[in-house]
Design a protein around this nucleic acid. Structure first.
Length: 741
DNA sequence: AGCACGCCGACT
DNA sequence: GTCGGCGTGCTC
């Protein structure tokens, strides 16, 4: 009698809730090959072959045998550890996402799984050091030295890449290979990020920094989970402190992960890392080349990437032995992913640290309210770094009441800079220092309207105004990327010369600044002027070399860059972020303005910050002026507690979208009728989502609000499972929604 | 997410 | 009469 063929569960990388069952592959001897949970396999799905992971638990014997297909191949990459499998399950459960979608983020590199048949790669040869003595004999020309330098920093170069990076011809590479200084290989698994130089001396730490660093080091050595908030103003030296913790993790032989907001992953941060550790860390972000992605993924999985720095998706990588997680700028909203799987990388990082049995550090000058509430409840601990490193005090913050100091009209149109702000800029420029004008709004004008008929230029796919970008002579939608030429006549009434820009964007502030200060060197810094790392670096260099003395920028100027000669910051519209009814509007405005303010000042000169506001009594403005962050958090906490809003209550947004508005409303009405009654929870809606029309799809939103003790996920699951959505209608749940857009 | 199956308009 | 549009539904 034949034995039943053996099956196992495989989670494939499709938006599928649970693993599918497959037959174990047959070896050459005709027997089935046993597999361990975590092994990466290729399996047939439909008529395709996709990556998947052998999952925990037994296959479902009820699935008919004839439905089962055989596993095609088993990848050479190290199996996904139980820690990561459990993490994937946890995230899927928490975010109400299909497990396969979450797994896909962890296997984000299809090429990484292929067996290596790649190109010939070069690295420093293993016995290069022993050949060092021969250096006198062999002529180590400068061209050769350049190649050695490049290859010492990181291995895994193709001949062409290596020659290009070193700026030499490929014959130099060939020559060095012949000499045995570098060697070639084919195996991607051997790719490694060099170990940081652990005896590199960091900067002298202040006693406060030293105490904080010692605390973190002992946590890393303790190899157990704890969450620490590293709380210190800009310039208090948080980075140096957590660098010590990274070094401790390396000494333990474990890996360290640093999560940064995408925008802060600047070359400045990497330069500091290189200075401290002598080598570059492994980087992980959205625009890595596929080849580097593959190499990095494999290096992380096999423990050959000691330090990984990356944006939120770096959290999903298959670390072989994670000993420390740092989340820098932990309050940043960009840690929340809002497409595909809706997750907050900071919160999930805490979960992953728990699973890894390692400490996690949340660093910020303006910790999120959630984070501070967790400190108060004792779930998180806190280390405070007082004062500014290097002696400069926090800048003076003054409020300019726009109701009394109204910006004068310019010849070209309305002005946006008050007398007080103009005077301060003049003073600063005359003193030979730098000033910055901050406005968190790209483009020239956020709204264009027709003087004749009142028509407003709107995006055809979204409920949003088109933003004029004068540099490109175009209109853009900042939500879907729609772009059109600036029309000559009103598209509605046909009137000529009738379209007028309304309100300011940074381009318009540049125009005003040039008009008011013709002698100044004005520069614009916005996300759309910094399209490449090279362009960004050039701009940062120009500012640091003082080729620019009046900088105009959006929020990109607030993050990660240090401009030592900047002594004045003017905020053009401090109230901007407060509109829109967003749950976190006040908190985000406070954080952003606090961070912008922190750009002003240096060791010798106290900085000055001027906030233009129409509501100087607002708690955000008052606490910014007083420099009292904790008072702001107190007021904000009270407001939230009163409304039973996060972090004192819980939220989940249910976003229903579809191309047909009446069908959508119909379905939403059905959902509304079946809203269940709960103690301690309520469901509001349907309301038009803030962008009622986005990318050509209509949107409605329900909001589940629950007491802290009740999980909104369960409520959403029960409620939504009662009613099946028509196929053209999509329902997504955003647990812990961050922005309400 | 793909990819095929399915049921209604313009083509050699 | 078919070729093909993309709406719908499944994938162990």
């Amino acid at each position: 009698m034949n034995k039943q063929p053996l099956r196992c569960r495989v989670q494939v990388v499709l938006p599928i809730e649970k693993p599918y069952d497959y037959l174990l592959p047959y070896g050459t001897d005709g027997a089935q090959i046993a597999l361990e949970p975590g092994q990466v396999v290729m399996v047939p799905v439909g008529r395709r072959v996709l990556p998947g992971v052998v999952w925990d638990g037994d296959a479902d014997e009820n699935v008919p045998l004839k439905k089962l297909k055989e596993i095609v191949s088993v990848s050479e990459v190290p199996p996904l550890r139980e820690e990561l499998r459990k993490f994937v399950e946890w995230v899927a459960n928490y975010t109400l996402s299909p497990q396969g979608s979450v797994l896909k983020m962890a296997l984000s590199v299809p090429q990484a799984l292929e067996d290596q048949v790649g190109q010939k790669l070069y690295r420093l040869s293993g016995d290069a050091l022993s050949k060092e003595g021969e250096r006198e004999k062999t002529r180590l020309t400068s061209a050769r030295q350049k190649v050695i330098d490049v290859v010492t920093n990181s291995g895994g170069w193709t001949s062409a890449d290596l020659a290009r990076e070193a700026g030499v011809s490929s014959s130099v590479v060939k020559g060095l290979e012949k000499l045995g200084m570098i060697e070639s290989y084919f195996e991607a698994p051997d790719f490694f990020f060099p170990a940081p130089v652990s005896d590199a001396v960091g900067p002298e730490l202040s006693p406060d920094q030293k105490a904080a660093a010692d605390d973190l080091v002992s946590r890393v050595q303790g190899r157990s989970f704890s969450t620490v908030v590293l709380d210190g103003v800009t310039g208090s030296g948080k980075t140096e402190v957590y660098f010590e913790a990274i070094e401790a993790a390396l000494r333990e032989g474990r890996q360290a992960l640093v999560l940064l907001p995408e925008i802060a992953l600047s070359s400045q941060w990497l330069d500091r890392f290189k200075q401290r550790f002598g080598v570059a860390p492994a980087e992980w972000h959205s625009d890595l080349t596929p080849a580097l992605r593959r190499k990095t993924w494999r290096a992380v999985a096999s423990g050959k990437a000691p330090v990984v720095v990356g944006a939120r998706s770096a959290l999903m990588l298959p670390y072989s032995d994670l000993g420390l997680i740092i989340v820098d700028e932990e309050h940043e909203g960009s840690f929340k992913q809002e497409d595909g799987v809706y997750y907050h990388a900071r919160d999930m990082a805490v979960v992953r640290a728990k699973g890894c049995g390692c400490p996690i550090v949340l660093a910020s000058a303006t910790p999120a309210l959630e984070t501070m509430v967790n400190v108060q409840s004792g779930r998180y601990e806190r280390l405070i770094l007082p004062g500014r490193h290097g002696g400069a005090g926090m800048p003076d913050v003054e409020l300019i009441d726009l109701r009394f100091d109204k910006p004068e009209r310019l010849q070209s149109g309305p002005g946006w800079l008050s007398q007080a702000l103009r005077g301060a800029i003049r003073q600063t420029l005359e003193a030979g220092e730098q000033a910055m004008l901050f406005l968190n709004r790209r483009g020239y004008a956020p709204l264009t309207l027709c003087r004749t008929c009142g028509h407003r230029l709107q995006c055809p796919h979204c409920t949003a105004w088109l933003v004029e970008h004068r540099r490109f002579r175009r209109l853009q939608c900042h939500h879907c990327g729609f772009s059109a030429a600036l029309p000559e006549t009103c598209p509605s009434c046909g009137a000529e010369d009738s379209l007028v820009p309304c309100g300011p964007g940074v381009e318009r502030i540049v125009e005003e600044a040039k008009l008011l200060f013709p002698e100044a060197n004005v520069a614009l810094m916005a996300s759309d002027t910094m399209t490449s790392p090279a362009a960004t670096k050039e701009m940062v260099d120009r500012i640091q070399n003082r080729e620019v003395n009046l900088l105009v920028g959006t929020q990109v100027v607030a993050k990660g860059y240090h401009f030592p000669y900047l002594t004045l910051v003017g905020v053009v519209d401090a109230d901007l972020g407060l509109f829109g009814g967003d749950l976190r509007a006040a908190e985000r405005t406070f954080q952003l303005l606090h961070q912008v303010a922190g750009r002003a000042g240096r060791a010798e000169h106290k900085g000055r910050v001027l906030l233009q506001t129409s509501d100087p009594k607002h708690p955000v403005m008052q606490t910014l002026k007083e420099g009292d962050r904790d008072k702001f958090l107190e007021i904000e906490a009270e407001t939230r507690a009163r409304g039973n809003l996060p972090p004192f209550g819980r939220l989940a947004a249910v976003i229903v979208s579809g191309p047909d508005e009446s069908e959508l409303d119909n379905f939403c009405a059905g959902l509304a009728r079946s809203i269940p009654q709960f103690d301690g929870a309520q469901i509001l809606g349907p309301a038009p989502a803030p962008l009622a029309l986005l990318r050509g799809k209509f949107r409605r939103r329900f909001l589940i609000m629950s007491k802290k003790t009740i999980a909104p996920q369960g409520i959403a699951r029960n409620w939504l499972s009662q009613l099946k959505a028509p196929s053209r209608i999509k329902v997504v749940v955003d647990v812990d929604p961050y922005s309400f857009l």
